[in-house]
Amino acid sequence: MKILVCISKTPDTTTKISFVDGNTKFNYEKVQLIINPYDEWYALVRALELKEKGLAAQVSVINVGLADSDAIIRKALAIGGDDAVRVNAEPTDAFFVADQIAQYAINEKYDAVFLGKETIDYNGSQVGGMVAGIMDVPFISLASKFELNGNVATAERDISGGKETIEVTAPFVISCSKGMAEARIPNMRGIMAARTKPIKVIEPNATEKLTSVKNYELPIEKAGCKMIAADNVEELVRLLHEEAKVI
């Protein structure tokens, strides 16, 4: 089985969010960029585990992004990816990204596409389902467990009101959430090996633009916290009822 793992570049989780150019662009200054945690911790690591068990022959990494993505791609290779491809374009919207990934997966005959359940910047949960939709293959959404037996996958996933265990034959797309695997830290040997692993750069396909961000806003600051004495909990109950009207 050939697995393609999608990685996205996101600001580190401690980033203080701000915008520039009249609030139309994210301010990347002094921001540390990381692999989207869901892509790294769950999708990539689970794919690598399958390879280590001899259930997958190849784990490739794909990113849609400009040359500033190379650092996170190298990290994915240091963790254990075999090779990588970068689609040389600014990732403008989810459909654009999904179209690039789907076309590549079809052309290169990948059996499975793995990605995180969402990115921590745009929180779309979109790319996985779109890739499945374009490829017309089953979509294992929001999976927290995944096993492989030859070409047949068994997965547990979140559905409204509970969990579902499903079985499906490759090819498929899977979006990974917590529970799939444990995060790994690249070791020295991995980092050295990553230096010589190939990163192929390809140009994007033309794709329609379905959405775009017009501008951003920051949430309205809270008026401040009203403090209540620890021996006066009745006052909190009263405020929640009469002032906040939430109970």
Binding site: N123, L210, T211, S212, V213, Y216, E217
Partner: peptide
């Protein structure tokens, strides 16, 4: 909401 609730984006839909 974007950036896990740390900001809000106004999205335009062109399709």
């Amino acid at each position: 909401n974007v950036f896990s609730g740390k900001a809000i984006a106004n999205y335009e839909m062109h399709s």
